[in-house]
C-alpha cells in the first residue's frame, strides 16, 4: 500500500478524551483538539484558522434553537411560569413524576415519529414546563427534595426529551437521517426503499419506550425511598 493511511489525526481524538477527563473547560478542549488535529494532518496555520472559522460560520444554526426562545421563557419565568407549572400539576392527585414523564415520553416519541420534532425541546419545553411540573408532582407527594435527588429528577426530564426525540424521529420517512442512509446505500450500489428503513426502526423504537418507561416507573420508587432523608436538608434550609 503506497498511500498509507495517516493515523496521526487521531491525536485530536486523544486530546478530546484527555481534556474532558481532566475536566478542562470544554470550549478550550475543543479548540485545542482542532489545532492538534490540523497540525497532525499537516495543515498550515492559516489554513487551519480558516477551517475553524469557516466551520464555525457554517454551523450557526445550532445555537439559534437555544437562543431565540430565551427572551420569552425568561419573561414568563419572571412572572411565575415555573411556580404556576408546579402548582398546576399538584392539582392532579394521581400525578407522579414518573407517570408524568412516561406520558411525556409517549407523546414526544409518537409526535417525533410523525415528523413533529419541534413540539418538544430543552429551552422551550423542558426548562419552563416539564421540569417544574415533574418537580411539582414530586414535591407535593414527597415534600422538599434533597439537592442530589432533585438533580437526578431534573436530569431525567432532559433525558426523557432526548430519548423520545431520538427514537421517534428516526422512524419518520421524511427525516434527514433516513435520506442520508438511503443516499449512502445507493452510493454503495444497494437500492433500499426509505420506507423499509423507517419500518425496520420500529422494533428498536418500541424497545426504547419500554426500557425507559420501566426506568421512569422505578424513578417514583427512588423518590419515595429518599423522602425519609428529605427532612434533614429542608430543616437546614428553613434555618438559613
Amino acid at each position: 500500500m503506497q498511500d498509507a493511511l495517516n493515523l496521526w489525526p487521531l491525536l485530536g481524538v486523544a486530546a478530546i478524551v484527555v481534556g474532558f477527563a481532566l475536566r478542562l473547560n470544554p470550549l478550550l478542549v475543543v479548540a485545542l483538539a482542532a489545532i492538534v488535529t490540523g497540525f497532525a494532518a499537516h495543515m498550515p496555520a492559516e489554513a487551519l484558522l480558516a477551517a475553524i472559522g469557516a466551520g464555525f460560520i457554517k454551523t450557526r444554526t445550532l445555537p439559534l434553537i437555544i437562543l431565540l426562545p430565551l427572551a420569552v421563557i425568561g419573561l414568563l419565568e419572571r412572572h411565575g411560569l415555573r411556580d404556576h407549572a408546579q402548582h398546576w400539576i399538584s392539582r392532579f392527585r394521581g400525578a407522579t413524576a414518573g407517570r408524568l414523564l412516561i406520558g411525556y415520553l409517549f407523546v414526544r416519541e409518537t409526535t417525533a415519529a410523525l415528523g413533529l420534532t419541534s413540539l418538544g425541546g430543552h429551552p422551550q419545553m423542558v426548562r419552563p414546563l416539564l421540569a417544574p411540573m415533574a418537580e411539582g408532582a414530586a414535591v407535593s407527594r414527597h415534600g422538599t427534595l434533597p439537592a442530589a435527588v432533585r438533580q437526578r429528577l431534573l436530569a431525567f426530564c432532559a433525558a426523557t426529551d432526548n430519548i423520545g426525540l431520538f427514537f421517534g424521529e428516526d422512524i419518520f420517512v421524511a427525516f434527514g437521517a433516513i435520506a442520508l442512509m438511503h443516499t449512502f446505500l445507493l452510493g454503495a450500489g444497494i437500492d433500499v426503499e426509505p420506507l423499509h428503513i423507517a419500518v425496520w426502526g420500529i422494533p428498536s423504537a418500541i424497545s426504547a419506550f419500554v426500557i425507559h418507561s420501566l426506568r421512569l416507573y422505578r424513578l417514583d420508587h427512588y423518590l419515595a425511598r429518599h423522602k425519609a432523608t428529605a427532612a434533614a436538608p429542608s430543616a437546614q434550609e428553613g434555618a438559613r
Binding site: 493511511l5 495517516n6 493515523l7 489525526p9 487521531l10 485530536g12 481524538v13 478530546i16 473547560n25 470544554p26 470550549l27 475543543v30 479548540a31 483538539a33 482542532a34 488535529t37 490540523g38 497532525a40 494532518a41 495543515m43 487551519l48 477551517a51 475553524i52 469557516a54 466551520g55 464555525f56 457554517k58 454551523t59 450557526r60 445550532l62 445555537p63 437555544i66 437562543l67
Partner: peptide, 28 residues
C-alpha cells in the same frame, strides 16, 4: 460557554473530516 459549545463541536467535526479522522478510526 455551553451556548457556544454545540457550534464548536460541529466545527471540530468538520475539521476532523478534513483531516481524515473518520478513515483512521474505521481502519482501527
Amino acid at each position: 460557554w455551553a451556548l457556544v459549545l454545540p457550534q464548536m463541536l460541529a466545527m471540530l467535526g468538520l475539521v476532523f473530516n478534513d483531516a481524515g479522522v473518520g478513515k483512521a478510526v474505521a481502519h482501527l
